[in-house]
Design a protein around this nucleic acid. Sequence first.
DNA 1: CTGAAAGCGCTAACAT
DNA 2: ATGTTAGCGCTTTCAG
Lengths: 334, 334
Amino acid sequence: MYQAATIKQIAQALSVSVSTVSRALSDSHEISEETKKLIRAYAKKINYRSNPIARSLKNGRSNSIGILVSDIANSFFSQTINGIESIAYEKGYHVIITQSHDSYEKELSNLSHLASRSVDGILISMSSQTTNYEHVKELHERGMPIVFFDRIINEIDTFKVATDNFKASFEATKMLIKKGNKKIAFLGNAPQLSISIERLNGYKAALDESNIVFDEQMVQYCLEGGRNVEEISNALTYFSSATVDAIIIASDQVSISAMRVLSKTPDAEKLTIIGFSNSDVIDLLSPRISYIRQNAFEIGQTAAQMLIKIIESTYPIYEFETKLLDAELHWIES
Amino acid sequence: MYQAATIKQIAQALSVSVSTVSRALSDSHEISEETKKLIRAYAKKINYRSNPIARSLKNGRSNSIGILVSDIANSFFSQTINGIESIAYEKGYHVIITQSHDSYEKELSNLSHLASRSVDGILISMSSQTTNYEHVKELHERGMPIVFFDRIINEIDTFKVATDNFKASFEATKMLIKKGNKKIAFLGNAPQLSISIERLNGYKAALDESNIVFDEQMVQYCLEGGRNVEEISNALTYFSSATVDAIIIASDQVSISAMRVLSKTPDAEKLTIIGFSNSDVIDLLSPRISYIRQNAFEIGQTAAQMLIKIIESTYPIYEFETKLLDAELHWIES
DNA sequence: CTGAAAGCGCTAACAT
DNA sequence: ATGTTAGCGCTTTCAG
């Protein structure tokens, strides 16, 4: 097996103490330039690299952060992760990615896995099947730095980053109205998710502003977050039979799954669809779909910056900010 | 700050020694059932979790494996990662994912990052811009367990897993020929990649079997692996002007980018396209494209199993296997 | 069956 | 300017 060099070996080889080596390598001012040079040269020669695990044990920090998302195959999340990584890397942190696949059980086990002190903080986007937040609360109360992004929860007071979902949904709905659609339906992810609630509120507000009466029947949810195509198929069939003009789809995965269903639906062109999606091929799908693209990369960057701020803060932080970023509406004339 | 419970605390609280606690928690046979029960109960009560960093330092293993892929947003890779995770999780390993974004520099720094972070082994799919393999060789020679998947290299003797690219490409080309296409072009990723070479060979063999003379002019490569749309656009324009009947696209990312270009090309329907792709919406794109879907999840699982086998092997391994998995050809009649 | 003690590699307070 | 020592949390001989 591969045996890495240690400061002890360097110390013995040069007949100095380990502390001298340690200090020399961290460029301490209390070591003479000569010895520093000597030690650095030898360290380089035997290709010494400091053991991060030992250092972690010593100073109680692992210099790694955990990420919990529902699915990395989801374009929104893979883009967010790229944003997170760009900041983490720059600041010297490793990133450990875990996926809940929208399962509460998986979320639970991933969080406890991450929490067992191997990460300095966690970036969380909630699973769509989670309705009980005790596990996150406990983690937070025990002092684990946490930042929520995308699917945030109000129950915990910390930094949060997301798209301005209300605004994005409001504007999308207004656009649908402006284009002459009368009967507009809303198809969401699980109802307790922040993204579902905020996007529904934006939708309602837009209807309201145009004096369209909100109709409870025009709202359907996908409890399994778009994984279950049948769920979506049922909702779409229901909307069709209710002679809906347009649908706003409030989730990336649901948008894609809905497109799959619609591609096999004869009269799909009659429906105007606008969906939240960060898929890089959303504009190539048929039938055509207008879409709302979130600023995923920047959401990731912001979340990572916030988390590292908490981790590196010497004093406890009591003032937390919730940052909302604008999304882009891409209207496709059909 | 968050302070985790330690075995020391348990020991003091129950007036036993730390070693007793350690042994009790690892279910050693030399501890009485009574004390075990007592200790486990208290450990559970204060929510004790063993500190993996301390354990790593002690036994020289981190129980984590590193992954290096070009891009997690690529469906093939996100599916592969899911396969890797399923095995890793089951066997008690953490997974640290890094992306090269097909850059040689990034690959270099990620690998040294992973190595110094003391992962127990690394799963590698080479960047398309890498032509010098010294960095990987050195890592391997220093004893780091490595398994290559998808984009493998011959220069290093270890376990490897990939699609049977020759066969997949051979069959796809045969299908194109069978469907009456005469002039068949090949569009690949970077030419030194194993996936490019093997798929080109399969293409050549199929032409050969049908007595079609191989024409060097009918082969184009994308040096930037599909990131640069212009590169692809040029290749496609070139093929068009050469009145090609069909194109086989030998890379996931290139397939998607090519579709983007073709969606804006007037006579795109005249071309028959067949591309390697694991995108979950490939069948919804327009124009229609036939596709070769790799068994990504299983590739990931196999690679992870191989790596863990190396890591956990007590004796050095000298016999290495290269496993090739079949892909599925999805022919779409247009 | 249980305890004492060493040590994994590193840092830092406390000597000298 | 350099050395000594203790200790981070855990496992594992070695001693009872």
